[in-house]
Design a protein around this nucleic acid. Structure first.
Length: 277
DNA sequence: AAGTTCACCTGATGGC
DNA sequence: TGCCATCAGGTGAACT
């Protein structure tokens, strides 16, 4: 579910509400997430004060005092919801953090997410963070750096772009969308992109992600803002979830294309075979 | 090393 | 109505 724009949206919301706030107490209702939550978790986070909410790829990093950091990944169906103190516990609410006048609820239907507390200095020793690729919205992510990280990659470009060690934060929706905008077939070998194509792909990755952040992300099914509302970017999607429809480019050019759905690595890929070569 | 397949989990949807 | 198969925005382990 949540890719970079969705996680960034939640980051901004949590940062605005929780910075400077203290976790009065916490409760774990189900500890079976991707990694089991240790029994000491609730006691360990109680009393920590939020200093800053950061994002790296699809991970949220909540930095607190006492040199601690909460690491959160929303998996496929994770949500972080800010609720009033008197709100009721709902189905799939697994962890509740109580603040002075709010509570932060971690809800996750499929329980593929991650919630863990680390010492600040050990955080970046975690494999996923240590090996994470470039942030696509940073200035040092360029056509050249993208091409360099794709060097020697024989897997399809679609698969490469989903690899978080190649580039951080892209998921199935935005990979499909960026490849469409750049006119590149998802079937192309990763290292087959020319200098010009890498430049174009880099440009559209930045564009699609930043436009989606502006719209508060994409709610295709489960994703929600921290107030429970939906992300508005879904209406801007060109190919994802649009199998059978005529693509906007073909429509403009009056050619006979249609968006098709294929399977790559066990996941759906949407693209226009006429436009994307 | 890098590519591929599969498991993890719940719920929605569609065919019979 | 029920039952079954399939699919879903992610990732990491275990194969080749």
């Amino acid at each position: 579910m949540p890719e970079l724009p969705e996680v960034e949206t939640v980051r901004k919301e949590l940062s605005a509400v929780l910075t400077g706030q203290r976790i009065e107490s916490a409760a774990v209702y189900c500890n079976r997430l991707r990694n089991p939550i240790p029994d000491s978790f609730a006691a360990d986070v109680a009393g920590l004060t939020v200093h800053e909410v950061q994002r790296r790829g699809k991970y949220l990093i909540i930095l607190t005092d006492k040199e601690k950091a909460l690491l959160i990944h929303l998996g496929m169906t994770g949500k972080l919801l800010l609720k009033s103190k008197d709100s009721q516990l709902e189905k799939h609410d697994h962890i509740v953090f109580d603040f002075a006048d709010k509570k932060l609820v971690y809800n996750d239907i499929r329980r593929f997410g991650v919630v863990a507390l680390y010492d600040k200095d050990s955080l970046y020793r975690i494999k996923a963070l240590r090996e994470m690729g470039q942030e696509p919205l940073s200035d040092d992510f360029t056509g050249d750096s993208l091409r360099a990280s794709l060097k020697g990659r024989k897997a399809p470009i679609k698969i490469c772009l989903l690899d978080q060690t190649v580039i951080a934060g892209l998921g199935n929706i935005y990979v499909c969308e960026a490849l469409f905008k750049a006119g590149i077939s998802p079937l192309r070998q990763g290292d087959s992109l020319t200098e010009k194509e890498s430049e174009l792909l880099c440009y559209y990755i930045k564009e699609i992600l930043s436009e989606s952040v502006k719209a508060g992300g994409t709610t295709f099914r489960d994703y929600r803002h921290s107030d429970g509302s939906k992300g508005e970017f879904v209406s801007h999607l060109s190919v994802y979830g649009r199998a059978g429809q005529v693509c906007s480019w073909c429509n403009l050019k009056d050619s006979c294309g249609g968006i098709v759905k294929i399977n790559q690595g066990g996941r759906g890929t949407f693209y226009c075979p006429v436009l994307q070569k």
